[in-house]
């Protein structure tokens, strides 16, 4: 019996735009995944605590406010401190090309920018979880 892929979708900081993340949540649900949505205005601490308690396969952070270079280092530090460094982390939203390069170096598995079709997001997460293997 194979378990659905578990995904936590989070919005961090003062960014109040969640239409995009809700569309992604709905698309992932319709692809058979279990999606935990945290709601708006979470801190990196809250997001990591939730993701570790929920033991998700994928942590997806949606950002439209430009704070990715301060948020993601904190997230990775806390994931390591919690012993959850096998979690797949993806970023979504609008961000400059040079940040995409830096985020990938930091450990973000995939940056899904604003014009990514839902099916590509589904395929990407499915492939990342397959590549990781059993845990």
């Amino acid at each position: 019996m194979s378990q659905p892929i578990r995904v936590l979708l989070a919005k961090v900081g003062l960014d109040g735009h969640d239409r995009g993340v809700k569309i992604v949540a709905r698309a992932l649900r319709d692809a058979g995944m279990d999606v935990i949505y945290t709601g708006l205005h979470r801190t990196p601490e809250e997001v990591v605590t939730a993701a570790v308690q929920e033991d998700v396969d994928v942590l997806g952070v949606s950002l439209l406010s430009g704070v990715q270079m301060t948020v993601f280092p904190k997230i990775f530090d806390m994931l390591r401190a919690s012993g959850a460094d096998d979690m797949i982390v993806v970023a979504g939203g609008v961000m400059p090309d040079e940040d995409v390069v830096s985020l990938k170096k930091m450990g973000v598995s995939k940056v899904l920018l604003q014009d990514t079709p839902p099916q590509t997001i589904i395929d990407t997460l499915t492939r990342l979880v397959e590549e990781r293997g059993a845990r």
Binding site: G32, I36, E46, A50
Partner: peptide, 19 residues
């Protein structure tokens, strides 16, 4: 019942506990 997927949103109401 169609895709087997879900949206689990109970945590949203429990954000006061998350720290």
């Amino acid at each position: 019942p169609y895709s087997g997927g879900s949206i689990l949103g109970d945590r949203i109401r429990m954000s006061d506990l998350s720290a």
